[in-house]
Structure formats: C-alpha cells, structure tokens
Design a protein around this nucleic acid. Sequence first.
DNA 1: AACTTATCAGTGGTCAGACCACCACTTTAA
DNA 2: TTAAAGTGGTGGTCTGACCACTGATAAGTT
Lengths: 205, 205
Amino acid sequence: MTNSSKIKVYQEVLEQIRLFIEEHELSEGDRLPSERELADQLGASRSSVREALRAIELLGLIETKHGEGTFLRTYRPYHSVELLATFVLRQPKTKEELLDVRQILEQQCIIRVMDHISSEDIDDLIEQLVTIDEQEVHEFIFKQLFSIVGNELLSKIWYLINNFSQASYRIIKSKSEYVRLLSFIKNKDIPNALSVLEHLYFDHD
Amino acid sequence: MTNSSKIKVYQEVLEQIRLFIEEHELSEGDRLPSERELADQLGASRSSVREALRAIELLGLIETKHGEGTFLRTYRPYHSVELLATFVLRQPKTKEELLDVRQILEQQCIIRVMDHISSEDIDDLIEQLVTIDEQEVHEFIFKQLFSIVGNELLSKIWYLINNFSQASYRIIKSKSEYVRLLSFIKNKDIPNALSVLEHLYFDHD
DNA sequence: AACTTATCAGTGGTCAGACCACCACTTTAA
DNA sequence: TTAAAGTGGTGGTCTGACCACTGATAAGTT
C-alpha cells in the first residue's frame, strides 16, 4: 500500500468541480454553486470544499466575490507563475544569471515591439522621459514596450526578473542613451537597437 | 474602495510561509512547522493555514504526509496540470503566449549551448534517444541542453513554462528531427539549428 | 539482554457549527 | 417618488472536536 494511494476529500471535490464545469459547459463569468451548496451536493464539509476552491483560486481559474459568489474567470497562468517564481528564485541567484535572462527578455521585447509600435508612440515615450526620474527610466521604458508587445506572460516574467535584479543591481544610464535606443526602434533598425541595449548592461558610463 | 483591495488571511499565510522558507533557507525534503504551529505563530486559524497549504500543495511545491508533517519538495506540477488542461484549451491567447515564450527560451538555449557542448556530448545524447519514449524526446533533449548551458534560472523558467504548456499541447516530432537539430548544433550551425527548431512547433508532421 | 508489543504524543484529515462582513434585493417609511 | 431599513444568501474566518496515521518511548515477554 503506497502512502500516496489515498485520495483526500479536497482532491475529490476538485475533480467534481471540474466535472461540473464541463457538464454544464460553464465559461468565463459564470457562477459556481455556493460553497454550502457544493458541500451539500458532494457530501463534504464546507471546509473541504473551501480548501479545493482556494487551491483553484490560486491557480487562477476562479474568482471569488464576497457576498456574491464564486465565478469562473479567464485563465491566465500569471498568478501561479508569480508564486512559483518566488519559490523557484528562492536561492540567491548569481548576478550573471539574472542579467543574462533579463537581457534575453529585453532583446526579444525590442525585436517584437518593432511590429507593433508607431512613430507617434515613440515620440510620446520620449516626451514622457522628461518627467521620469533617471533611476527609473529603464524600468519605465521597458514596461511600456512590453505592454505594447502584448504578451502578458512575457511581461510578467520580465517584471519579476526586474524586481529581483534590483535587489542586487540597477541599470542607470543617462536618458540620452534611451533616446538613441528609441530612435533605432523607430527606424526599425534591429542591429543598432540591440547594440545600444547591450551597452546599457555595462557599468561604465 | 476597490473590491480586490482586501487581502484574505490565507493569502497572507501564503506569503508568510514563503518568507519562512526563505529565512530558514529550507530546501527539498525539509519539514515545515505543523499546521497548528503555523496557525499559532501567524495568528490565524488552522482552517486558514490549511487553505494556504492545500493551495501550495496543488501547485506542487509541498508534500504532505499524514501523521508526519508537511515537507518541501522540488517543484513538480501536481494535479494542477490536468486541472489546467480543461481550461487552458479554451484560451487561445494563453496558448499562443506560452508557445511564444517557450520558443524564445529554447532558441536562446540552442544559441548558448554551442559554446559549452562537445561533440561527444551530442553523440551521447543521440545514443540515449533510443531509450526515450517519443512523447518525451523534446523535453528530454532540452532538459539536457539547458543543464549544459548552466544558467539555472533560465532552466527553471523553461521548466515551468514547459509544464504549463503541456496542459494545452505537446510537441511530438519524430526522433529524426531531433537528430537533425543536434547535428546542426554539433556543427555550430546556428541558422539551420534554429530553422529546425522552428519547424518543431508546427502541428503538421 | 534482546526482542516484541502496547502506549502515547504529535501530526495531518475532516467535520459541524458559529459568527462576521458583504451584496443584491425587497420592504418600509418619509 | 425616493431614501432608508431590513432580509436572505454568500464568502471569510474561527473554534473545537474527533479520527487516522506515524514514530518514538515504555512496558512486557522470552
């Protein structure tokens, strides 16, 4: 008898909820039965039902509204990704690894943004730079660029890496460097844009 | 006052557990405090602690042994993958994003591995392919390649993405494709290697 | 002394029930 | 007609109880 052979109640509830959703063809925004109802129907206690629901919630599959009910939501892995990341990144990573991954993400961001960004967007960005503190220029620009690229998952990963990075180092360059970068992006000049980007990661100014 | 502003107890517990693991530098196999202890320390009820623990368990971060305690484990998706599958399949956007990110990571892996891998390594890999089930060839090869590249952070991110991906699709190509890929890597032929890689993502065989 | 068995404390698993906060809706009062 | 108070249902949280399982200790047996 293996120790993992016993199925816990909350896991059974999990499966039943899944089946319920499938059978009733529920989709985004639809409401699930109340916790008490589920407990009753499935012959489990409300506690067990809640354990299952909280787990699904953390996965990002449902959304809970106090006083209203539990609703299906559009699934995005990002909630769990964030939590997983904090565990995965638990051990202090070397500065090089963080920088490496960061570079990959930002390179790809620049490559991909070329297809989506307009000249006006870039001009707007350059204008806004005036109001941004120099320490936050890098983060500001890439936050904008990533959101233009539109891949939320990519953005989220970058954002996490960015935050972890700032614990050990910070990219601070003069705004003129970023204006150059943006200009190359405007001209769809990938090689030069990437070249400028690479310079940003070095310490010397 | 937005409705999402209130943090639930179980979410706070989640965060505290994460911090506890960080502070005490716990790693795989280490035991967490008992549910009652956690409840006491964090000033929460055991129910709330359990909601948090069950959620983490579903994610695959911890393992629970009846009568013994709760233990950290290396991340392995638990029920989460099957559970997510039902939902992710209906979210084309998420699927696209996952594939996109995955492609980025695997491209970079191939580019980077060229500097670290020897001809013998590749020959070994090709030999081992015989024993691998066709369904797992892709995962197997990249697991090896990533470990050769040496950036643990990159590896872990890929591993996470890979697992999430498998909830919605799976890359299955004949082994000969992978032999081609490895051959190009052997010859340090980046363009052709990336070209083969790109083919892998398409459905047609 | 060595070995088996019984006991026990600690742990997770589950449940029932209580109370609160919140929301949508209805009823009531101005 | 409109504003206020009430109402029922919902999630959020806590308490305390009991069970099943585990590992170690104590007691008993050979």
